[in-house]
């Protein structure tokens, strides 16, 4: 025991002296003792997984005809993600919901907006910002931006429930589990985890569906109102739509860089 410890220190000392990291030391020790270093963890990728470098969404408000269309999106999303139906308004959890133009765009609304926009409800959700204030505020990295595709995600198991992210989000896109949500889920979808009380949650651009080659649930039932794709790919459908139409984003003056666009 004493001897092997001394040997370890010797190897460590030598490799430190010649400027090696600890990796080779551990390998050397492992080889010396007959153990092999564990192989690096492998993540299995679904062959049909949808990939992008920056996911984004375009909402074509011109195509919205009725509130039912948006309610269908809300229903699809909330069913998919086991979002509870809580009667108490204070405790409500919303991933995607409908609101008026002047609520979605408080500083961009004018007294004379088109009649269509004035009477239309818009879907709002997490904007998956390029520069997300919620991620900056989180003290545990429980909410983070996935560098590969820009989706702002939540680790429900790491969240301590301080709700700093809720104060930081300028879009009111985050909800907190003020009580155990499980008794209020009508039908649990086993493919997505339920949450416990005391953690924050929000729209995740359906990462779990993208991973198996499916579009987000809301997009699927949107009848063409929502288009989802890679904003960095000039040939993607979203890029084409944005090239041909004038679109606005929510509170761009704050420098957050939302990934959800609204064609008005």
């Amino acid at each position: 025991m004493e001897r092997s410890r001394r040997e370890f220190l010797k190897i460590a000392g030598v490799s430190a002296a010649i400027g090696l990291g600890t990796g080779p030391v551990i390998e050397a020790v492992a080889a010396a003792t007959g153990h092999q270093a564990a192989p690096e963890a492998q993540v299995a990728h679904h062959p049909e997984a949808l990939k992008a470098t920056r996911w984004g969404m375009v909402v074509d408000t011109r195509k919205i005809e009725s509130a039912e269309q948006i309610e269908r999106m809300v229903e699809a999303c909330h069913k998919e993600h086991n979002v509870p139906m809580l009667e108490e308004a204070r405790h409500q959890i919303k991933w995607i919901w409908e609101t008026h133009f002047h609520n979605a765009f408080p500083s961009q609304s004018t007294d004379r907006i088109s009649e269509h926009l004035e009477h239309t409800l818009l879907p709002v959700m997490c904007n998956h910002c390029e520069n997300p204030p919620c991620v900056r505020a989180c003290p545990t990295k429980a909410t983070f931006k996935r560098e590969s595709d820009g989706i702002v995600m939540m680790d429900f198991h790491r969240c301590i429930g301080c709700r700093f992210c809720m104060a930081a989000c300028p879009y009111g896109s985050r909800s907190f589990n003020f009580r155990d949500p499980r008794p209020f889920i009508a039908e649990t979808n086993k493919a997505y985890p339920t949450r416990m009380k005391g953690v924050v949650e929000k729209c995740n651009f359906c990462v779990e569906r993208l991973a198996v080659g499916k579009l987000p649930a809301c997009v699927e039932v949107s009848e063409g109102i929502l288009t989802f794709g890679d904003l960095n790919d000039p040939d993607s459908e979203v890029s084409q739509l944005l090239k041909e139409n004038y679109a606005i984003r929510r509170k761009t003056n704050l420098g957050t860089g939302p990934s959800v666009y609204y064609i008005v």
Binding site: P139, A142, G161, K197, G198
Partner: peptide, 23 residues
Amino acid sequence: VDLGQPMRMLNVIFYPTPNSMLF
């Protein structure tokens, strides 16, 4: 008493995040 998950409080130390003011 304000934390939703007080038993996870030490996550602030386990995963120190210098960009958060709470840190």
